[in-house]
Write a protein that binds this DNA or RNA. Structure first.
Length: 130
DNA sequence: CAGATGACTCCCA
DNA sequence: CTGGGAGCCATCT
């Protein structure tokens, strides 16, 4: 379904995805919060509607499920992430403690009409996730 | 307007 | 770990 969902909404989602730094990942839920007014599912559907011509410019592979699991078929996403330095644990999950994006900078978010993520606390200290 | 459907997430058995 | 079910939002039938 969703043959041609709201183009403007897709653009906002794509813009946020393009802001995810190389080597980092964001969850569907995080992207939804940043865009505002939508939920994780909407993000997933939008990414599934990326036109072929733009799949090269949009780092869709940097968006993963909340627990670091990749939900797309095949290994393309995992390989793309590994090639840019994202590490996976033995169960094929992204090591979120080390690669989860903190969200856009306040200035950028405000300038583009987006939200910033709520403080994720001292996430960089809990490295003992294994 | 009601029902169905998803690259989601959370909870419980 | 697996599976089911509810809640979630936007769009399509």
């Amino acid at each position: 379904m969703l043959p041609h969902a709201n183009a403007a909404l897709h653009e906002r989602i794509y813009t946020v995805v393009c802001a995810i730094p190389r080597g980092m990942v964001a969850t569907y839920g995080d992207v939804a919060v940043i865009v505002g007014g939508i939920d994780a599912r909407e993000v997933g559907y939008a990414l599934g509607e990326i036109p072929k011509a733009r799949v090269e410019e949009i780092p869709w592979q940097r968006v993963v499920a909340r627990d670091g699991v990749i939900s797309t078929r095949g290994l393309a996403q995992r390989q793309a992430l590994e090639s840019e330095g994202v590490a996976f644990d033995p169960t094929e999950r992204v090591i979120m403690a080390r690669h989860q994006w903190d969200g856009p900078q306040a200035a950028w978010a405000e300038a583009n009409g987006f939200h910033t993520l709520p403080t994720r606390g001292e996430r960089g200290e809990q490295l003992s996730l294994f």
